[in-house]
Each structure stands twice: as structure tokens, then as C-alpha cells.
Amino acid sequence: MACLICGEAKTIEAHLIPKAFVAEVKTERGVQHLILHKGEARPRVSHTGVYDRGILCGPCDSILGGHEDYALELLRELRKPSGPSGGIIGVDPIDGDRMVRFAAGIAWKYAVTTQPGRIDIGPYVDVLADVALRDAPIPPSVDVAMLRIVELDGDVYFYRTPMPDRKEGANVVRFTVGSFIFFLKIDQRRNGSTLPAECWLRGRTKGAFVTGDAELTEEGRMHRQLSSSAPSRRFFTEMRARKARRP
């Protein structure tokens, strides 16, 4: 299958969630990650996350890689400050448009993939491709905001693949990496007031994000439930047993 952006015949194994974000998830050395998809009875195991061989060539994937590298380093820095749950933490400087292009790239990959987790975002498939991969001007209908999930020790325990959602009547794509929930708006409607205006990052060089306890978020509660499920317990019990048998 040819690259969906430039038509190049030779495509690569393009990671849907960037490999570096997968590797951030806290785990013991040598222990694989557990991937659970809604509706699947058995979890999958992986060291690097899910990839698709049929969507991007190397040069086009590297365009997304530039946005992903920027986001990775920024989120690592933003995890360092501590503050009360529900607080607003300023970010200065920030390349807000780069963060929009990063989030657009993640959502686009899940909108075109044939792997589990594919999402339907209608006509915004082409809009996000233009934003993330063709350096097009970002329209007002596309914007992104972040919410920091605060665990007890501030580490990263999970990621969540994109899913369509609604926020104050506006369509968004919601996903989690680096202990941040991203809300990528794909709608002509206004951003809404649930999150402060400065948290919406399109066009900003100074921005902000909100913090919240993991247990107060859908993602945090889901992580707790899935990690305590029977398939998860069996997997981690087996992995610990394997580690104990090593010389």
C-alpha cells in the first residue's frame, strides 16, 4: 500500500502512539506492556506499541516525528512542577501550533489505520492531514487543550488511544500520553468554557494546562479497573514469575 500523503510506494512501520510515549509508561525492565482493546477478551503484549505498515513512508512519518519529539520533551518538563489538583499551571514559552499539529497527527493516524482502535472523524481526516503533515494554516475549527493527570508519584502509568468525544457540544478527539489528556477540537463550534481560554493552544506562545487527580478522570478510573482485571493480573503474575526464574 502506498503512503497516504505523498503516494510513495515504500511504506514503513509507523507507530500509531509514538514509541517514545509507549516507553515512558512505568514498568520493570524487560517487562512488556499490556494492550487492552474494548470488546477483546484477551489483552495483547508489546514492547513498543501498535504500528501500521500501510499508511506512511519514512519522510512523511518523520514530519510527524518532529511534532512528536517536541511534545515529548515539553510534557517531560511540564510534569516536573507540582501543584494542587484543579490548579492552572502556566506554560511560557510554548509553541501552541506545534502541539495542535502533534495532536492532529495522532488523531489522523487512528482515523486511517486498519489496526484495532480506528476512529471515524468524518471530513476532518483531510483537515488533520493538512494540519499535521502539510504545514497548512490551522483553521479555527481545530484546537487542542491539555489536562495533567496527577498520580501519587507523578509517574506515567498508561496511555489511551484516541476516541471521539464531545465537550460542551463540540466534537473532540480525546487521547492520553505522557500523563496528559489531550482534547483535540474538530468542530466549528467555540471551544467552550469548561477549560480556561488560555488552555486552548492554537496560535499561542504562552499557554496553560489544568491538573486533576487521576481518580477524578475517566482515564484514571479505567486504568485502575483494567489493571485489576483477571487477564491483567494473570499477565503480570506470569511476568514476575519469569523474572524470578532468571539466573
Score class of each variant (00 low, 15 high):
Ala2Val: 12
Cys3Ser: 04
Cys3Thr: 01
Gly7Thr: 03
Lys10Val: 11
Thr11Glu: 04
Ala14Arg: 05
Gly30Val: 09
Gln32Arg: 15
Leu34Gln: 07
Glu40His: 12
Arg42Thr: 08
Val45His: 11
His47Val: 13
Thr48Arg: 15
Tyr51Gln: 10
Gly54His: 15
Ile55Gly: 04
Cys60Leu: 10
Ile63Thr: 09
Leu64Asp: 12
Leu64Val: 11
Gly65Thr: 11
Ala71Ser: 05
Leu75Arg: 01
Leu75Lys: 04
Arg76His: 05
Arg76Met: 11
Gly87Pro: 15
Asp92Ala: 15
Ile94Tyr: 07
Gly96Ala: 00
Gly96Gln: 02
Asp97Phe: 03
Met99Lys: 01
Ala104Arg: 00
Ile106Met: 00
Lys109Ser: 00
Ile119Gln: 06
Ile121Asn: 01
Leu128Arg: 03
Val131Arg: 01
Arg134Lys: 06
Pro139Phe: 05
Pro140Gln: 09
Ser141Glu: 13
Asp143Thr: 03
Glu151Met: 09
Asp153Trp: 09
Tyr159Pro: 10
Tyr159Asp: 14
Thr161Pro: 02
Pro162Gln: 02
Pro162Ala: 09
Pro164Leu: 04
Lys167Val: 10
Glu168Thr: 10
Ala170Gln: 13
Gly178Asp: 10
Phe180Gln: 07
Phe180Asp: 05
Ile186Asp: 00
Asp187Ser: 11
Gln188Val: 08
Arg189Val: 07
Asn191Met: 06
Leu195Gln: 00
Trp200Ser: 02
Arg204Ser: 02
Thr205Arg: 14
Gly207Glu: 05
Val210Glu: 08
Glu219Val: 15
Gly220Glu: 04
Ala230Ser: 10
Arg233Ser: 00
Arg234Asn: 07
Phe236Asp: 01
Lys243Tyr: 14
